[in-house]
Simulated assay, not measured.
Amino acid sequence: MESKGLKILVHASAFFAPFLVPVAVFLFATYLYPDDKDIRRLSIQALLFQIVMGVLLTVSGFLVIFLIGIPMLIVFGIIGVVVPILGIIKALNDEHFSYPIVGSWYY
């Protein structure tokens, strides 16, 4: 499975290039593996997940003024780290993985 490495790369990109790598992998997979819809679905989900987490962390940062933002920052920060690690583990085991927040947004 040549897409196993791409799946791991998409999940791991959350730690070094959360927006650039999923877009590049989507374009790469569209042209080189047109029949593999799984890697395209995963790259779009990873991109949407990072956008949603960025928005949630930004809103939480603004809410620190009211003290409700501190626990929100902690929870969303943990989610932003744990979910990609779970995705890497699933990709290593060749199991299906959908991001929890945006899994049903994109077929």
Rank of each mutant, 00 (worst) to 15 (best):
I44M: 11
F28I: 12
S98A: 14
I79A: 12
V81S: 05
I68Q: 08
V102E: 04
I39G: 05
I78W: 03
L27W: 12
L63V: 06
L57N: 09
R41C: 02
K90Y: 14
Y99N: 02
I89H: 01
S13C: 06
L73N: 07
Y31F: 15
Q50H: 14
I79D: 03
F26A: 01
S13G: 02
V55S: 00
S3H: 13
S98D: 15
L67T: 15
V75M: 12
Y99C: 02
G61C: 12
I88S: 08
G80S: 10
P34Y: 10
L32V: 13
V75G: 10
Q45P: 05
F19I: 09
A17P: 10
G87R: 06
G54C: 01
L73M: 14
I74W: 06
D94P: 05
M1D: 04
L63Y: 02
V59T: 14
M53W: 00
L56A: 11
V64P: 07
Y31Q: 08
G69E: 07
V64F: 07
K37I: 09
S13A: 09
P71C: 10
V81P: 04
V23N: 00
Q50F: 01
I74T: 13
T30M: 09
M53P: 03
I74M: 13
V81G: 07
D36C: 14
A91H: 10
L92K: 13
F62M: 12
V75E: 05
S60I: 04
F16K: 07
A29W: 05
Q45H: 12
F97L: 11
F16A: 11
I44K: 07
S3I: 15
P18N: 10
L57V: 12
L20Y: 13
P71R: 06
I70N: 05
L56V: 04
Y107C: 04
V23T: 02
F76E: 03
I74R: 03
G77W: 12
P22W: 01
I88Q: 07
F15D: 06
I51Q: 02
I79C: 08
T58R: 03
V21R: 00
V52N: 01
F97N: 02
L63I: 08
D94H: 11
P22G: 04
V59Q: 10
H11K: 04
L32K: 15
I8H: 02
A12R: 04
V81I: 15
P71E: 07
M53G: 00
I68C: 12
Y107K: 13
R40E: 11
V55K: 00
V81Y: 10
M1L: 12
R41S: 04
I51K: 03
V75I: 15
A17L: 15
I89K: 11
K37N: 09
L32Y: 14
I68A: 14
L73R: 06
V59N: 08
F28R: 13
G103T: 06
V64R: 10
A24P: 09
F66S: 09
K4Q: 11
V59A: 13
I78A: 13
N93D: 11
S104K: 12
L56M: 12
H11E: 09
A91Y: 06
K7T: 03
L42E: 03
A14V: 07
Y31M: 09
S104F: 11
I70L: 15
V10Q: 03
Q45R: 11
W105M: 14
K37Y: 08
F76I: 05
I44D: 00
L32G: 08
S104A: 13
I39Q: 05
G87D: 12
Y106K: 04
V81F: 13
Q45I: 10
G87K: 08
T30C: 03
F97A: 03
F49Y: 13
